[in-house]
Simulated scan of single mutants.
Amino acid sequence: MSGDIAWVELPAADTTKARTFYGGLFGWTTTEFGGDYHTVDNGPAGAIAPRAETFTHPRVYFATDDVEVSVKRVHELGGTAEEIQDVPGVGRLVHCRDDQGTPFSLYEPAAQA
Rank of each mutant, 00 (worst) to 15 (best):
S2M: 09
G3L: 02
G3N: 03
G3I: 03
D4M: 14
D4V: 14
I5G: 09
W7F: 15
W7T: 12
E9T: 10
L10Q: 11
L10G: 01
P11I: 13
P11D: 03
P11K: 12
A12R: 13
A13G: 12
T15H: 10
T16F: 05
T16S: 09
K17M: 13
A18Q: 09
T20H: 10
Y22G: 02
Y22E: 03
Y22V: 07
Y22K: 03
G24V: 08
L25K: 01
F26E: 01
F26C: 06
G27R: 10
W28H: 03
T29C: 08
T29S: 15
T30H: 06
T30Q: 05
T31W: 07
T31H: 10
T31P: 01
E32S: 11
E32P: 10
E32V: 12
E32A: 14
F33C: 06
F33N: 07
G34T: 15
G34A: 15
G35K: 04
G35N: 02
G35D: 03
Y37G: 02
Y37F: 15
Y37M: 03
Y37T: 02
Y37K: 08
H38T: 05
H38R: 11
H38F: 15
V40Q: 04
D41Y: 03
N42V: 06
N42M: 06
N42Y: 06
N42L: 05
N42D: 09
G43H: 05
G43I: 11
P44L: 15
P44R: 06
A45V: 14
A47F: 06
I48L: 12
I48W: 05
I48R: 05
A49P: 01
A49M: 15
P50Y: 11
R51S: 11
A52V: 05
E53S: 14
E53F: 04
T54S: 14
T56Q: 13
P58N: 08
P58Q: 08
P58F: 09
R59K: 14
Y61A: 07
F62M: 14
F62E: 03
A63G: 11
A63S: 15
D65V: 10
D66M: 12
D66K: 11
V67T: 11
E68M: 01
V71T: 12
V71G: 08
K72L: 07
K72D: 11
K72V: 04
K72C: 00
R73C: 00
V74H: 05
H75G: 02
E76H: 04
E76G: 02
L77K: 10
L77P: 00
G78P: 12
G78N: 12
E82W: 02
E83Q: 15
I84R: 02
I84A: 01
I84S: 01
I84P: 01
Q85N: 09
Q85S: 09
D86N: 09
V87L: 14
P88G: 03
P88Y: 10
P88H: 09
V90G: 00
V90A: 10
G91M: 04
G91D: 01
L93D: 00
V94H: 08
H95Y: 07
H95G: 01
C96W: 07
D98W: 09
D99N: 14
D99F: 08
G101P: 01
G101E: 02
T102C: 13
P103M: 09
P103K: 08
F104W: 10
F104Y: 15
S105G: 06
L106S: 07
Y107R: 07
E108G: 07
P109N: 05
A111M: 13
Q112A: 15
